[in-house]
């Protein structure tokens, strides 16, 4: 049964791939919008049917008129519902990497510049085939919808299709679409605090390790970049009503060296520890490189370098394990 439904899902996804190809932005149209009477819509039809029977049996023209009016209204609703939904222009903002166990969030911008009119009604946004999602009106958040994605393991995850649905204006019809925003989420290993196993350049391998005490010099405040560790936010500043800012630290060190993956059975823990070291060293502005199996990242420092290293950790697969 599950095999059958899985095969069915694969077929559906393939069909969707053809019908609504992946893209960063979508302008909805006849091809990408699905519309069908909701459960309540069918119920509404049943009520109209009962009114028709009642009106016929009592030969009551007003009941019949009421019945026809409701049916015509439903017909009108079909178009209003579609029009409202097809007004939508959706663009996905780039998704920021997270550490495993945290939740990533995909932010959709549902407003086309130059067109101030937003679609009305409650929107439900879920991941493909997931029951739980968020429900809100576009006007509440200036056309921004943020959908959380929960992660458990490190790795590279192509984000599944996002299902957007709306039942405006009377809930008789459900308009929905499944959009693939072509986004890949990088989930870094969860950092596990440990000692820094830092091999300085020029020294023999494994001979010398430097211990880095956690005492940092406060350097400056700069505006918060989404995705940064929360513990670096200057909460005192935020609490006073200011913008979100991060504390920046400096370490007057100019050491150079490599982090490398130790030979161990517990690969995941080792990677997590490495992640912690990468973060710590970056915070201390120490230039470092990373040796992961066959891959080597040359020593460097800065945010970009940190993310490069963490991404390498996220996607690392031991040579034997791939097969």
């Amino acid at each position: 049964m599950t095999a059958l439904s899985r095969a069915l899902q694969r077929r559906t996804l393939k069909w969707l791939e053809k019908r609504i190809p992946a893209s960063q932005r979508f302008a909805l149209d006849l091809k990408s919008v699905f519309i069908f009477p909701s459960l309540f819509g069918w119920g509404f039809i049943v009520v109209c049917g009962s009114l028709f029977i009642l009106g016929t049996n009592y030969q009551n023209n007003l009941m019949l008129l009421l019945c026809y009016f409701l049916l015509s209204l439903m017909l009108i609703t079909l178009f209003v519902s579609y029009q409202n939904f097809a007004k939508l222009h959706v663009r996905a903002l780039p998704v920021t990497p997270v550490y495993a166990g945290n939740h990533a969030s995909l932010t959709l911008q549902c407003q086309q510049p130059g067109k101030p009119k937003l679609s009305d009604g409650l929107f439900t946004v879920t991941w493909w085939q997931q029951a739980d999602g968020i429900t809100c009106e576009l006007a509440e958040h200036n056309g921004h919808l943020t959908l959380p994605y929960f992660t458990t393991n490190r790795g590279l995850y192509p984000l599944p299709r996002v299902t957007l649905s709306n039942e405006y204006p009377l809930g008789l019809f459900r308009c929905w679409t499944h959009l693939d925003f072509n986004q890949t989420l990088v989930v870094y290993p969860t950092p596990i605090p440990c000692k820094i196993a830092f091999q300085e350049e020029g020294h023999d391998e494994g001979s010398n390790t430097t211990e880095q005490a956690g005492h940092d010099d406060f350097f400056a405040l700069r505006s918060y970049i989404p995705g940064e560790p929360v513990h670096r936010v200057a909460w005192k500043h935020v609490a006073k009503g200011g913008d979100w800012v991060s504390k920046e630290f400096s370490q007057q060190q100019a050491k150079m060296g490599y982090l490398s993956l130790p030979a161990t059975d517990d690969l995941e823990t080792a990677l997590s520890k490495l992640a912690f070291q990468v973060i710590t060293l970056s915070e201390q502005r120490i230039a470092f490189g990373l040796k992961l199996g066959r891959q080597t990242i040359e020593p460097d420092s800065g945010d970009n370098h940190k993310h490069r290293c963490l991404t390498a950790l996220a996607r690392y697969a031991p040579v034997g394990a791939i097969a």
Binding site: T56, N57, L64, L65, L73, L75
Partner: peptide, 18 residues
Amino acid sequence: ALPIAIVLFLILPQLPPL
């Protein structure tokens, strides 16, 4: 919806009581 309802009312045959 009203004009459509009226057109339906005018032309749909009225059944005898079921």
